[in-house]
Amino acid sequence: MRTKDLFDFGPVFGYFFRKNDPNRKTNFNLRTMHFINKLSMSMFLVGFIVLLYRWFIR
């Protein structure tokens, strides 16, 4: 595995901005799981940005 492959964020952004597939059934559990995943990734990114701000700006 190359270093470039470790920093490939394409699938992450695709997860956030993909369209709903009309052929796939959804239910409450699946929608809730995806919401929690998106929320946790967003919170991680905000925390990471805060850490970078504290390390480099202050």
Results as ranks from 00 to 15, higher is better:
Met41Phe: 10
Asp5Leu: 04
Lys19Ser: 09
Phe16Leu: 00
Pro22His: 01
Phe28Lys: 12
Phe17His: 07
Leu51Gln: 14
Met1Ile: 00
Phe9Pro: 00
Lys19His: 08
Leu39Cys: 04
Gly10Tyr: 12
Arg54His: 07
Gly10Leu: 05
Met43Leu: 09
Lys25Ile: 05
Val12Ala: 08
Ser40Cys: 07
Ser42His: 02
Met41Cys: 08
Met41Asn: 12
Met43Asn: 01
Leu30Asp: 08
Asn20Val: 07
Phe9Asn: 02
Phe44Met: 06
Gly14Phe: 02
Phe35Glu: 13
His34Gly: 08
Gly10Asn: 10
Ile57Glu: 08
Lys19Asp: 10
Arg31Val: 12
His34Leu: 12
Arg18Leu: 02
Ile49Glu: 09
Leu52His: 04
Trp55Arg: 15
Asn20Ile: 09
Ile36Val: 15
Asn37Arg: 14
Met1His: 09
Thr32Gln: 15
Gly14Met: 13
Phe44Leu: 09
Arg24Cys: 06
Phe28Cys: 00
His34Lys: 15
Trp55Tyr: 14
Arg58Ser: 13
Trp55Gln: 14
Phe28Ala: 07
Arg18Ser: 11
Arg24Glu: 13
Arg2Glu: 07
Lys19Gly: 05
Lys4Tyr: 05
Asp5Gln: 00
Asn29Pro: 00
Met1Val: 03
Met1Arg: 03
Phe7Pro: 01
Phe35Ile: 11
Val50Met: 05
Lys4Leu: 13
Asn37Val: 14
Phe28His: 06
Arg58Leu: 11
Lys38Glu: 09
Ser40Glu: 04
Asp8Arg: 05
Asp21Ser: 06
Val50Ala: 04
Asp5Gly: 02
Phe16Gln: 09
Asp5Ser: 10
Leu30Gln: 06
Gly14Ala: 07
Gly14Asn: 11
Leu6Asp: 06
Asn37Met: 14
Asp5Cys: 07
Phe9Ile: 15
Ser40Thr: 10
Tyr15Leu: 03
Leu51Cys: 12
Thr32Asp: 15
Phe7Val: 10
Leu51Ile: 11
Lys25Ser: 03
Phe35Gly: 09
Phe48Arg: 04
Asp21Trp: 05
Leu45Asn: 01
Phe56Cys: 02
Asn37Tyr: 12
Arg58Val: 10
Arg24Ile: 03
Ile57Thr: 10
Phe7Tyr: 15
Met1Gly: 11
Val12Tyr: 05
Phe44Val: 10
Asn23Arg: 06
Pro22Lys: 00
Arg54Asn: 11
Phe9Trp: 11
Leu45Asp: 02
Phe17Gly: 01
Phe56Val: 09
Leu51Val: 13
Trp55Thr: 15
Gly10Arg: 07
Asp21Cys: 03
Thr3Trp: 00
Asn29His: 08
Asn27Lys: 04
Tyr53Leu: 08
